[in-house]
Structure formats: structure tokens, C-alpha cells
Design a binder for these strands. Structure first.
Lengths: 314, 314
DNA sequence: GTGAAAGCGCTAACAT
DNA sequence: ATGTTAGCGCTTTCAC
């Protein structure tokens, strides 16, 4: 295979200088029509493609943003990453995606790699909350935005978890439930889990409900949809019908939850707004060189009442 | 913000030369313990982090591989990308993910961007099959591997679609069904769809079944799981019970299909093997500089019989 | 309008 | 064992 043509090859072939070729390629206007034509022809003939690495090196800025996600196989995050990629690309940025499965050491390794690649910025989804990693990034000066999770030290956009859980619990209480369980799993990011649980507990107190172990509850709030859907499965497997014997409400609003056979009642997060706001927060810093304290955008969650919740029997 | 320290800063501070610093950082062994210590100390004190861009420029190779996917929100692809990322990272490569939503123009734009970034290689999932784009990549000389789709011009790994559909149709025929429909959607990649449909038709002939419009069929094979699951929804919404009135079988083997409430009978693709083989095919070319004709790995699909298929009534 | 020259931050011979 | 030198492919003053 022949070595890739460089700007020098184009220069030689078109009889122009390196700098003129560079100028033409970037769309400069002050070139004689003839030269421009020759340069473009040479580009075409040689199959020249500018080397982005070299460009970025000399420009001292890259046009890729890193996305660090816990579990891409969870449709909620798949959906989010997809939208983030779209917004980023529209703004002229590519996205480098890393999956961490929630392991702090992987998170650290991926972030370190992104920093070495000099990414323009980093979006963290379901951030594990490891202080040290964030310290690194902050010290490095690379802009970060946390999406759909909470982190006071950097820009973030998320849903009002307190409101979300209140919505869920009040819905349950309104259906006559008094004994409610909260269910989570190790896969749920710690900080997120904490705030959801606390919001749950508070909402219970406010509505006069009481938190109960799963096996004694008539209703349950799950930390997220995937968990809720699995929970429905486990409950029915154990002979407890949903929603006849026990009501279940999830959190996130993933698409499969809306299928008739699932019909998951849930607290939905606005995917699109989460993604667009996340990219905007980040690019404000990246492109605008914005300084200043962390900003936090709080979005309103929405209760989607479907078929896994029902009035308490008897 | 202060400019990032470079290797020169480390050199000055430690009293070593640029090359020695570079050598130490890359783990070279032939350095006096004292100098190494001083260099490392300087790195630490300065918070020096090597510039990957510069390194890759001079080495004339990057350590990122591009992943082009149609729809990340489809859990099948989310899962696949997640695994690809893991294998790539284990081999020392980062992944740059692009979502195309099946639009040829987006596909072209993303691929072009990857080429300019001089990615080491590209993995295409659910490749739209646009000849021109592939021509570009092939002409460019960047290695490509197509995963879970067919493409004779480059390395690829996929499941034996013919076997898969035969499995599905024979299962249906074995249950007494004779009138079977094939259902697809525009979201299914064209080439994939064609081969699935043809395999379906052939299997029908072999088993003595007849292809039938959906509304007259007692069983249906869907082009993929997401479609199958939605189809079950639509059928039941229209008053046709699954599997009592109509049996449904999908293709892919996504996790949600296994939930008790869905219980989708499907032809499962081996996610993990798809991902590991895909990365291996690619890296053989990338790292090994392997030449030669396209290789094709054909994996065996597996029929997962669950609850959306049943013996034909009466 | 066009070109020459000086780097961006790094690695890799080649000396010493 | 360590330093010197010459680039990697590009952009960008600054002359002409």
C-alpha cells in the first residue's frame, strides 16, 4: 500500500506551496481561480484527505468529546449516548465512547486515556462518583459535564429526583398503598441510589406510608426501569401477581417499559433534553472558554401511569 | 489556566533531555536509577500527561478504532458496542462511536470523519451497505470489519442467517403452522433484510409452508427482536392473542425478550463471539498488517423457544 | 495573491 | 546511559 498523500504531495502536484494548499483546503477566498482549481484537482487525483491529528496538534484543540457510560446495554444509556452523539456531531465534534460497567478502576483508566487524547471535553453518564477521578479531570482543566446524575463540583443536568420519587410514592399512596418497598441493585450508581432512596423515604413520611421489606410490601418503587422490569418478573415467578398483589413503579422511562405486555408505570426522564442540555453545558466551556462555578440544570420528571400499578386490594 | 506542561518542561525540570524523558515515560530499562527518579518526580510535580495526539502523529498510527452503528438505542447494538469497546480497550484501543440511524449521508459523514482522524480501523454494525462509502474506506486502506451483517468485500463476522431462519420456520412448521408471514421494517438494514427474507422463503418451501400476508397468517417471523416485540404488541392490540391465535418468532436474542412477560421465541445471535471475532478480524489487519482476501466468520445461531410460539389451534 | 519559515509535542535513529 | 537531530503533517504569521 502506498503511503498516504500529504499536503506536500498536493503542493508539488499542483505547483503551489504547502501554505496555499492549506489555505485553499480550508476554504480561503483570496486565491486566484486558476490556482484553486489546480489545487482542488490535485487533491482529487491524489485522493488526499487532511490528517486530523496533525491539524489538531498544531491547533492545540481537538474536536472529539469523550463519553463515559456505565452500561451501554441498558437502553436508557444507549438512548442517551445516541442522542449525545447526534448533538455533538451537529456541533462538529466526534464522540469517543467508553463503557465502565461501574468499575472505578475502568472508569479511571478510560478517563485517563481520554485526557491523553486531549479530548475537548468529557460527558459522564451514571458517574461512579469517584472523587479522585474527578479531581484529575478538574485539575487537568478539561471541561466535564455530568448527565443524569448529580455532582456538585462540575456542570450537570439531571432530573429532580426528589420530585420524581414524590410523584411515584404519591401515586402509590393515592391508590391506597401504605406499605411500600424500595428496591435497588449494585448496578445503580451509588450517589444516584442514595438520593433516590432518601427522596423515597421522605415521600413516604409525607404521605404517611411506611417503608417495608419487599416481602411485606403491597407496592414497590424500583431504582430504575430495568430493575423494575426484572422485579416484575421475579415477583410473578414467586407467585405474586403484578399489579393485583403488588404494584411496581420504575424510574427512567425506557422504551420497552411502554410495551403493552410490560406496561411499566414509571417516572420518566426527558431523554432529549438531558442530552441537548448536557452537550450545551459542555460546549459552553469548550468553545466559549466559559469560566465560573458549576451550573446545574434540573429537569422535571414525568409520571407515566401504565399497568403495573393498581388500587390496593380489599 | 496555565498551559499544559510538555515533555520539554519535564526535561528542564529534571535536567534530562527530551529523549530521555520520553524513554523513561515509555518504561525504558536502561536508565540510571537516579535520573529515572528525577524524571518521574518532575512528571509528578508538573502533573505532566503525555500528549497522545503528538505521539500518534509521529508514530503514524492511532490507537482508536471507529465503530459505526445504525441504532444504539436498539439493545442488541448497545450490547454489541459495549462488548466491542471492552475487547478493543483490552487490546489497547479506544473506540470512537458513531450512530447513523441508517441514513446513508450520516454514515458517509461519520466515516469520512473517522478517516480524517486516521483511526486504526473501523467496525461497522448493521452497515447500510452503501457501496460508495465502502469504496472510500477500502481505497483509503483503513481496515474494516463488518459485524453482524454481510459484506463480501471486507472481513466480516455474522450468524448463518439461512440456518437461523430455517430454525425458526422449522420450529413453526413443527408446531403445525402452514401459513407464515415475514415482517420487516425500514429500520432493518437492507442487505440483512434481503438475506433474511430469502432464507425465510427458502425455508418455507423446504417445509411445505406458504408465505402469507400478516392478516392471514397463523405464525410470523420478524426480521429482528425489537420488531417482533412491537409486533406482539400490535397483534394483541388488534385482538389477536399471542401465541393462541398467532405465533411470533424474532431474531437477535436481546435480553428483554427473555422476560417472562415477553417470553419471545427467537433466533439468538452469540453477542460475545460476534464482538470478540469482530475485533480480532480487525486487529489482525491493523496490528499484523495482514493482507489477503476478505475473511468471513459464520457463527451458529441458536433457537430459543419461549412463550410466543405454540401449536396451531384445531 | 503566494510562499518561506517556524513551530505544535512527541519519537527514533544516531552519536557520544 | 544520555543527548542531538531530524522529522510526523499540518497551520500561521510575516515577508514579498
Amino acid at each position: 500500500m502506498s503511503p498516504r498523500p500529504t499536503i506536500v504531495d498536493v503542493a508539488e502536484r499542483s505547483g503551489a506551496s504547502k501554505s496555499t494548499v492549506s489555505y485553499v483546503i480550508r476554504g480561503g477566498a483570496h486565491v486566484s481561480p486558476d490556482l484553486r482549481r489546480r489545487v482542488l484537482a490535485a487533491v482529487e487525483e491524489l485522493g488526499y484527505r487532511p490528517n486530523g491529528l496533525a491539524r489538531q496538534l498544531v491547533l492545540r484543540r481537538t474536536s472529539t468529546i469523550g463519553v463515559v457510560v456505565g452500561d451501554l446495554a441498558n437502553p436508557f444509556y444507549g438512548e442517551l449516548v445516541k442522542r449525545l452523539e447526534r448533538h455533538a456531531h451537529e456541533a462538529g465534534y466526534a464522540t469517543s465512547v467508553s463503557n465502565t460497567d461501574g468499575h472505578p478502576e475502568r472508569e479511571a483508566a478510560r478517563v485517563e486515556a481520554l485526557l491523553e487524547q486531549r479530548v475537548a471535553g468529557i460527558v459522564m453518564l451514571q458517574f461512579g462518583g469517584d472523587r479522585e477521578i474527578l479531581d484529575e479531570v478538574i485539575a487537568d482543566g478539561t471541561p466535564v459535564a455530568v448527565v443524569s446524575s448529580t455532582e456538585p463540583r462540575v456542570d450537570s443536568v439531571g432530573v429532580d429526583e426528589r420530585v420524581g420519587l414524590a410523584l411515584a410514592v404519591r401515586h402509590l399512596a393515592g391508590l391506597g398503598h401504605e406499605r411500600i418497598a424500595y428496591v435497588t441493585s449494585p448496578l445503580v450508581e451509588e450517589r444516584t441510589n442514595t438520593i433516590r432512596y432518601e427522596s423515597f423515604a421522605r415521600a413516604c413520611r409525607e404521605t404517611g406510608c411506611v417503608e417495608t421489606p419487599l416481602d411485606e410490601a403491597t407496592a414497590v418503587a424500583a431504582a430504575n426501569d430495568i430493575l423494575a422490569i426484572e422485579l416484575v418478573d421475579r415477583l410473578e415467578h414467586a407467585g405474586r401477581r403484578v399489579p393485583a398483589d403488588v404494584s411496581v413503579v420504575g424510574f427512567d422511562g425506557i422504551a420497552v417499559g411502554g410495551l403493552a405486555r410490560i406496561g411499566l408505570t414509571t417516572v420518566a426522564q426527558p431523554h432529549e433534553e438531558l442530552a441537548s442540555a448536557g452537550i450545551r453545558l459542555l460546549l459552553d466551556r469548550v468553545a466559549g472558554g466559559l469560566e465560573g462555578p458549576p451550573r446545574r440544570i434540573l429537569l422535571e420528571p414525568r409520571l407515566l401511569v401504565r399497568a403495573t400499578t393498581a388500587r390496593k386490594e380489599r
